[in-house]
C-alpha cells in the first residue's frame, strides 16, 4: 500500500532517524528541494549512511534524487542504489518518456555493477510541468520500473501560470489525467502534497476528493497528516462486511469450479472480487499479493 509517503529532508538527522516511527506506508528521503545547494554533498552522504545502517520499519523507502538537468543526479543514484533498504527512487520533473529511459539506463548500469538484479529499483515519477502531465501515460508506461506517477503541486501551478487555490481548481484536470494514465499503465496514481500542515479539515476534504477520483495515496510533508489520510482510506464496517462476503463467495465458487456467483442479488465477477480484496487490504485484513 502507498496511502502515505512521508518526505524526510535528506540533511536532517533527527527526521531521518525518527521518520519511520510516524506510521506512514512509505518514506521519501529527499535530496532535492529540501536540501540547500551548498549541502547536496553532505545530504547525499548522510542518506547513504542511513540506507546502509538506518532503521525504516516496514516502510517502502525511496529517495528523491535531483533532476537530470542538474549535475547531481548521477552521484545521487550511485550513492543510494547499491543498498537493499532502497526500494525506489523518486524522480523530479519528469517531462516525457525519454527522461524515464535515461534514468532507467543509469539505474541498470549501477545495478549491474553492484550485483543487484537489473530492474529491481523502482521509479516514482513526479510530473511537475504541463508537458509532463500531457505525457502522463507515455511516462507511466516508459519502463517496467515505473511504480507510480505523481502530479506536482507548486511547480505545476507555476508552469500553468496560475496560483494554488484553496479548492485546488487548477490541479483538478491534472489529477483526473493522472488517475487515468496511471491505471491504464498499471501503476499507482499518488497525489501531490497538501501544503497547509495545520489545516486538518482541508486535508480531509482534499483527500476524500482524490480518493474518490481513484488515487492510491498521497505524498505527506508532516507526520500529523498521516492518520487523517489513513482514516479516509479506511473502509467502513459495511464495506468490510460486504467485501468479506464477496471474497468468501469467490473462494467457494473457485472450489466448486464455478466462475461468477451471486452475492446479495448481485453478480460477483473478477473485477468485483478484486475491489473487495483491495478493501480488505486497506482494512488490514488481507496481505498485499
Amino acid at each position: 500500500m502507498r496511502r502515505t509517503m512521508l518526505y524526510l529532508p535528506g540533511n536532517n538527522p533527527n527526521m531521518l532517524t525518527r521518520g519511520y516511527l510516524f506510521g506512514s506506508d512509505g518514506l521519501i528521503l529527499d535530496l532535492e528541494d529540501a536540501v540547500a545547494m551548498s549541502e547536496k554533498d553532505t545530504a547525499r552522504i548522510l542518506v547513504q549512511h542511513f540506507l546502509k545502517q538506518g532503521e525504516f520499519g516496514d516502510c517502502e523507502v525511496t529517495v528523491r534524487i535531483n533532476g537530470i538537468d542538474t549535475e547531481y543526479w548521477k552521484d545521487d543514484l550511485a550513492a543510494v542504489v547499491p543498498f537493499p533498504a532502497l526500494h525506489g527512487i523518486r524522480a523530479p520533473k519528469v517531462d516525457d518518456a525519454t527522461t524515464v529511459k535515461i534514468i532507467d539506463e543509469e539505474l541498470s548500469i549501477i545495478e549491474d555493477k553492484n550485483g543487484i538484479p537489473v530492474g529491481q529499483t523502482k521509479i516514482f515519477c513526479l510530473l511537475e510541468t504541463a508537458k509532463g502531465i500531457w505525457n502522463a501515460y507515455d511516462i507511466a508506461s516508459a519502463s517496467p520500473r515505473v511504480a507510480a506517477i505523481i502530479p506536482g503541486g507548486e511547480d505545476l501551478t507555476a508552469d500553468l501560470k496560475t496560483s494554488r487555490s484553496y479548492e485546488g481548481t487548477e490541479l483538478e484536470w491534472a489529477r483526473r489525467m493522472m488517475v487515468f494514465a496511471a491505471r491504464a499503465a498499471g501503476v499507482d496514481p499518488l497525489d501531490t502534497v497538501f501544503p497547509r500542515v495545520t489545516d486538518d479539515a482541508g486535508l480531509r476534504k482534499e483527500m476524500e476528493f482524490v480518493k474518490q477520483l481513484g488515487f492510491a495515496g498521497k505524498s505527506v510533508i508532516h507526520p500529523n497528516q498521516i492518520p487523517i489520510i489513513h482514516d479516509v482510506f479506511k473502509p467502513t464496517e459495511l464495506e468490510i462486511t460486504k467485501a468479506l462476503k464477496i471474497v468468501e463467495a469467490a473462494k467457494d465458487a473457485a472450489r466448486r469450479g464455478q466462475g461468477a456467483v451471486t452475492v446479495d442479488g448481485r453478480m460477483v465477477d473478477i473485477p468485483v472480487v478484486k475491489r473487495a480484496e483491495y478493501t480488505l487490504i486497506r482494512a488490514g485484513l488481507l496481505e498485499v499479493k
Binding site: 532517524t17 547536496k40 554533498d41 549512511h49 546502509k52 545502517q53 549535475e71 547531481y72 552521484d75
Partner: peptide
C-alpha cells in the same frame, strides 16, 4: 553513530576536495 560517521566522511571529503 550513523550520523557522526556521515558527518566525518563528508567533512573529510570536503577537505580533500573530492566531492561537490
Amino acid at each position: 553513530d550513523i550520523v557522526l560517521g556521515a558527518r566525518v566522511e563528508a567533512a573529510v571529503k570536503r577537505m580533500m576536495g573530492g566531492d561537490k
